[in-house]
Design a protein around this nucleic acid. Sequence first.
RNA 1: GCUGCUGUAGCUCAGUGGUAGAGCACUCCCUUGGUAAGGGAGAGGUCGUCAGUUCAAUCCUGACCAGCAGCACCA
Length: 653
Amino acid sequence: MSEVAEAHVTITLPDGATRTYGTGVTGAEVAADISNSLAKAALACRIDGTLSDLSRRIEHDAELSIVTAKDEAEALELIRHDCAHIMARAVQELWPATKVTIGPVIDNGFYYDFDRDEPFTEDDLAAIEKRMRQIIEARDPVKTEVWTRADAIAHYEKTGEPFKVELVEAIPEGQPIRMYWHGPWQDLCRGPHLVHTGQVPADAFKLMSVAGAYWRGDSSRKQLQRIYGTAFRTRKDLEAYLHMLEEAAKRDHRRIGKQMDLFHLQEEAPGMIFWHPNGWAVYRALEDYMRRRLTAAGYKEIKTPQVVDRKLWEASGHWDKYRENMFLAYVEEEHAKEKRINALKPMNCPCHVQIYNHSLKSYRDLPLRLAEFGSCHRYEPSGSMHGLMRVRGFTQDDAHIFCTEDQIEDETARFIELLGSIYKDLGFDSFDIKFSTRPEQRVGSDEIWDKAEAALEAAVRKVTNDYTVDPGEGAFYGPKLDFKLTDAIGREWQCGTFQADFNLPERLDAEYVDADGERKRPVMMHRAILGSFERFMGIVIENCAGRFPLWLAPVQAVVATIVSDADGYAERVAAELRAKGLRVETDTRNEKINYKVREHSVAGVPVILAVGRQEVEGETVAVRRLGEQGQRVLPLAEAAAGIAADATPPDLR
RNA sequence: GCUGCUGUAGCUCAGUGGUAGAGCACUCCCUUGGUAAGGGAGAGGUCGUCAGUUCAAUCCUGACCAGCAGCACCA
């Protein structure tokens, strides 16, 4: 039996057909057996579901499918992976002293990290691309060999590739050590790879940028030079991708922030936002909206100090862990016996517990939902700042829900519902949920963790079964849910969070008197929906590309005069609209209406009201909506009512 | 924080070892024009900061600051 089975393997193809071959048959041979055209188109194969080289020998009965360029995901992965190797080969051929490390496929492309004394320049990238094209045109075969650990280490010691030696040493016992050959160039890699270099489309790859990256992602280790590139199946796909990048750059909130005069940053306050009237108008519209939603959802708004003595941060545990990232505030107190050290609050929770603790709480007070638009400061590393997205001074839509363990599930469900409704109002229709469970290092009994995790998960399940679980990724103080929304161009942003905390109530001694008269610890739920207002503003700006919905637009309408005789009337029109709560400007400049319409349209003003002699005489306005052709002449009162109705925030409609 | 790059008018950018230029914006004048740029004139800069080299530095060198890209970090 076993002797016969060793001689033959049964290959099951995707359509269910089976074929029998000699043991050790390769995917390439099977493809060739099926048809010449398939053999030519074949890039790789799947053996029992695992993506493999076509040259991999099949030793057992297996399901086999041949991967071609039609299999988009697999083809992209293979092309990019080989492209990374071809790039590394090109680099080593151009600069033989360069040491190679790793070169994986990532979202939208690939990279390869090199160790080279000289920095790579933009010109170098062009030279590397040229060399890569030559390698592709050579159609060099890709071969694979399995080496012993000792041979691999000896080889890399001989060729002076210390990073590769380290990689080989890190490969677990029992795993094959594969060497790939792209023509004469050889690299350690787990594969799989294409059949020959010519399968990478010579006109559909591009090297994008150079950047520093630490060896093995460890900032205490050597910094390498990383070259990023991307590759696609066709030139057209590459061009579409490059076009998408341009579109993303156009909606960069830093650029739009300047164009629309929303905010600025300057040297004297790195990471802190100077909000201009336009930007602040949007911010306030958003804040007002959030305030109404939170109030309606049973939250009580509070405000806590920004400068707080270090004693509180010591008690909360932040001083030990995050002191380096806190802004400290000293005061020149000549007569003080003891110098006080204060910190600008990096988060709101300890202050919220102070308010909770200020009076004795009963179980009847729970759940108590305390909300604050909490202005926080964190000394973020200098290289991490990014426009509005990562700042040192920010405002959270923060709240803490003090509740009993039994209330966790209900509070979670309420929160998810609120969050979904708010995201929808703000123009984000879908979001993903991630559930993070207990880590190794944690506080709280397993019993409480069981209960909290079950409550969070049950609440999520009420809303959707579509969530991912991240085992062990919870905070040390409790399990959490993270919420990621998707923007107009498909990018994901993690904004919302909902975290159970068993630790802080303990540390800061929060209690309530239960029905049985016993004093007990409440659970504290940290939660945010927008995260930080600053960052969320950035996301909103990029999501709408500066064309805000009417209710959020910084300037909702401009009254533009056609002749200067209408200046007085324009002021009356503006006053009428302002009386309805609208943000309105007048444009009485000595310019033609064409000029004014163009300028305000480009600036993204949603409504332009043109007034000339006819409008003055008829008490009308010519209403032009952004994105629409032409205009409608309406009586002033009717136009004002219509615009005001359309500008109503979504929760008040 | 690390590596690389960048810093010139309000904005976008050009430029030079002998103290600077364009377009847009701004101001004024002409024009009162009916829905995406009318014409003319003018004003505006300590060339990121501080040192150094040089007869002379916005330009070369160094340090620092800030920004950009990526990495690392993100309670």
